[in-house]
Simulated assay, not measured.
Amino acid sequence: MPCNPNASEEVKAVMTFLSEVAGKGLITGQHTQTRDQKELGYIQEVTGKLPALCGFELLSYSPNINYEDSGEECLVEVEENKNTLEKAWDWVLNQKGLITFAWHWFSPIGGRDKSFYTEFTDYDASQAVIEGTVEHQALISDMDHIAEILKEFRDKRIPLLWRPFHEAEGTWFWWGAKGPDVARKLYRIMYERYTNVHHLDNLIWVWNSPLKEGYPGDEVVDVISRDLYPPKRKHTALKPEYEELIQITPVSKVTALGEIGVTPNISEVAANGIPWAWYMIWSKEYGSTDVWTSEKVLYATYHHEYAITLDKLPRLY
């Protein structure tokens, strides 16, 4: 059952599907963050298929992007990401695929360039979790801004795999810079606000860290996940990584590879019954070239009987 007691029927249907498929199949996923979505075109060209799950990025929808003090790389990334919500709508309404959102959140105040990175902002997440501070007010303001975007999907009864504060175990993003306990508090603040204030009952809550310390609690998490970047063309079942991840809670949760640089070895995953529900290859060269995963392996993965591709995805909403 979803952690949100008021979760929509569509969320319940997706959660049931994820629970039932884990250990019996592997949902194929691909992240995209640009309007042209080269990754999807590449996969279709090589395999003749599309992933069942598509990832989208909300970075350009951050309210506090410092355009005046950003480098060319940052500005290009923001520009390429603009209006990608149109592609997200096409994916769910026309392709009928599953969807997940990530948010490289430009710091709510302060910062320059890619200020979702700790090195480019002095925004203090440890102050942001304290009510009454300027940092907290800015945090809530940004959350509310994105909530309005998510409400459009709610109103159309579209369930979203929502993966906020990703890679919370690291210090490279501002939300992890002050340690896992602060990241835990940030997540719980968002959960409470999105569930009890904005009534975003279309969200499936995905926690993204393998650390037991900082886990926000079973009552606010639907799926546990982690991000992994093995060496180029090294494909395994990721069994040790799975066993480490499930140590963060004694409760059986749906498990997923929130980001990965190469396809898992789907034959080994199937043979060992490792219940990853989905994997999601990251964008750009990870998903649109053969640098990390060869065309031969990509084709074999998408045509494996264990793989759940878009054409094998049941109608869930």
Rank of each mutant, 00 (worst) to 15 (best):
3 C>F: 12
3 C>S: 12
4 N>Q: 11
7 A>R: 07
10 E>T: 14
10 E>F: 12
13 A>P: 04
21 V>C: 02
26 L>T: 01
28 T>Q: 00
33 Q>H: 09
39 E>V: 04
41 G>D: 13
42 Y>G: 06
50 L>D: 00
51 P>Q: 03
51 P>D: 02
51 P>R: 00
58 L>G: 00
64 N>S: 13
67 Y>K: 12
78 V>W: 06
93 L>F: 13
103 W>R: 01
111 G>Q: 10
114 K>G: 11
119 E>Y: 09
119 E>M: 13
127 Q>G: 08
128 A>W: 05
131 E>Y: 08
140 I>Q: 10
146 I>A: 08
150 L>P: 02
159 P>T: 15
166 H>P: 05
172 W>S: 10
191 Y>I: 07
198 H>Q: 14
198 H>I: 11
206 V>E: 02
206 V>S: 03
207 W>C: 10
210 P>Q: 13
213 E>A: 14
213 E>Y: 15
215 Y>W: 14
227 D>W: 01
231 P>Y: 12
234 K>D: 11
235 H>D: 05
238 L>A: 13
239 K>N: 07
245 L>F: 09
250 P>W: 07
257 L>G: 03
259 E>W: 01
272 N>R: 15
274 I>F: 06
277 A>K: 03
283 S>G: 14
284 K>S: 08
286 Y>D: 00
287 G>W: 01
290 D>G: 12
295 E>G: 14
299 Y>Q: 08
300 A>E: 15
310 L>Q: 01
314 P>N: 07
